[in-house]
Computed example of a mutant assay.
Amino acid sequence: MRIISWLITNAVALAVAAQLFDGIRFTGPIHGQEEIKHKLLPLLLVALILGLVSATVKPVLKLISIPFILLSLGLFLLVINAAMLGLTSWLADGLGIGFHVNGFWTAVGGSIVITIVGWVVDGLIGPEDDRR
């Protein structure tokens, strides 16, 4: 059950970021039922890729970047989160999913939105123990 809530949280956060930033987009129709039909599976796949990248690559980058994180008082974590979103975009493009992030600053803004929306959705869903 936890993996489903995790996937939904990532998908909602990605959808919000894609709505707020022109540089974060999914290819396909842009209005109505056709948009939902064509973008739901890619959204879930990109959420899965983002989660896997964040679970595998991000801890290694954080470990290597500890001096930069400390010197910047944690702001370097924004760069790491943006890099994870950029890597997700690159992997999704390589797999033919049709998800694109244009530019570093768009990735920074998108990663901030994804983090905040993820916190909010997790707060609304509640802890794992409360869902039984």
Rank of each mutant, 00 (worst) to 15 (best):
M1I: 06
M1K: 06
R2E: 13
R2V: 12
I3H: 12
I4H: 02
L7V: 04
I8E: 01
T9S: 13
A11M: 04
V12M: 08
A13T: 02
A13H: 02
L14R: 06
V16F: 05
A17G: 07
Q19C: 10
Q19P: 00
I24A: 06
I24V: 12
R25M: 09
F26G: 03
T27A: 15
I30N: 15
H31D: 15
G32S: 11
Q33V: 13
E35K: 15
K37V: 11
H38P: 05
K39N: 10
P42A: 03
P42M: 03
L44I: 11
L44V: 09
L45T: 07
V46P: 03
A47K: 08
V53M: 09
V53R: 05
V57W: 01
P59F: 00
P59Y: 00
V60K: 03
L61R: 01
L63C: 02
I64H: 06
I64N: 05
I64D: 04
I64P: 06
S65N: 05
F68L: 15
S72E: 04
L73V: 03
L73I: 06
G74W: 05
G74A: 08
L78F: 14
V79P: 03
N81C: 05
A82F: 04
A82T: 07
W90E: 12
L91W: 04
G94F: 07
G98D: 14
F99K: 01
H100N: 14
G103S: 10
F104I: 01
G110E: 08
S111L: 08
I114R: 08
W119N: 10
D122H: 12
I125E: 09
E128M: 08
D130S: 14
